[in-house]
Design a binder for these strands. Structure first.
Lengths: 147, 147
DNA sequence: CCTGATCTTGAAAATCGTTTTCATTTTATT
DNA sequence: AATAAAATGAAAACGATTTTCAAGATCAGG
């Protein structure tokens, strides 16, 4: 993403926040930019370090609060992890699934169209009414695979 | 499961722990029995409350340590949750996936045979080498579905 | 069955990620 | 500018989990 595209997208997200009644602040802008600029899913502390390059007096609390707002508006999705903290990603259209590189953390999305049929089968077999699903794959991305 | 079957299985688990160099203790037995006796996935605090009916002076720390040992031996699997703590389930043969009732917590397993093909497709499309996957479904079990 | 080496235990404190509280500063509106 | 509402940072609180450490239990060898 070019610097101009990053500015553009950052501004769009701030517009959406504003439309929802939130205010436009420098802290929020720095955090949004850090999320959008990274090809990786970042955890709150990483976002904090990144955004503090713009706003040295930023508090970690503000990062948590901003993530919450963005998640409420559906602009980011949270990626669950085995241990410790979660990571934050720009949300894509519709429900997507994650493919996470266990070496460098790069995240790729994939659509789970094929899954609908599987879920119907499972629902029929078990009698459950399926409401939600979590699918995350872990592996090595092309760059991290041994040659 | 009948009381006799529960005793039998509990004893088998303690045998396995012992074979791996762990000692046979009353605390461990109470915790193992609580895990095996429940049809639900229990979190550490629930296991603590349950096992304390047998061993009133049990410490919560011991519950955590015992879960860790059981997980190391592959006797239990941990079920991830959106918020807060995780839950513990007796592990089944091979890799299984969970179907969790969001109302009563009952857990059903299902095999993900159909998934292998999907994962191959995704690997081919993305260039990732897939190492591990997490699939958990949430919904309402037959008993909790509105009639 | 003693006896020591080693493992296990419980209480308390420490840790880690996250949330709450509250007084102060900013923002958007008048 | 003046005001009401929301955003902020520091510090404290929080919940789940882990570590520390001294005391207790288990197991192997004599």
């Amino acid at each position: 993403m070019s610097p101009a595209e990053l500015d553009q997208l950052t501004s769009e997200w701030l517009d959406k926040l504003q439309e929802s009644g939130y205010r436009r602040t420098d802290r929020c802008e720095a955090i949004v930019r850090a999320i959008l600029a990274s090809p990786r899913a970042m955890d709150p502390m990483e976002l904090f370090d990144e955004a503090r390059k713009d706003i040295p007096r930023l508090g970690l609390v503000t990062v948590y609060r901003t993530i919450q707002k963005l998640a409420d508006l559906g602009l980011v999705e949270r990626l669950h992890q085995e241990e410790g903290c979660h990571r934050v990603l720009p949300a894509t259209q519709g429900h997507q699934h994650f493919l996470v590189c266990s070496s460098c953390g790069t995240v790729t999305y994939f659509a789970g169209d094929n899954l609908a049929g599987l879920f119907e089968t499972i629902a029929a077999q078990t009698g459950f009414e399926i409401q939600e699903h979590w699918l995350q794959l872990f592996g090595l991305c092309p760059a991290c695979r041994p040659a």
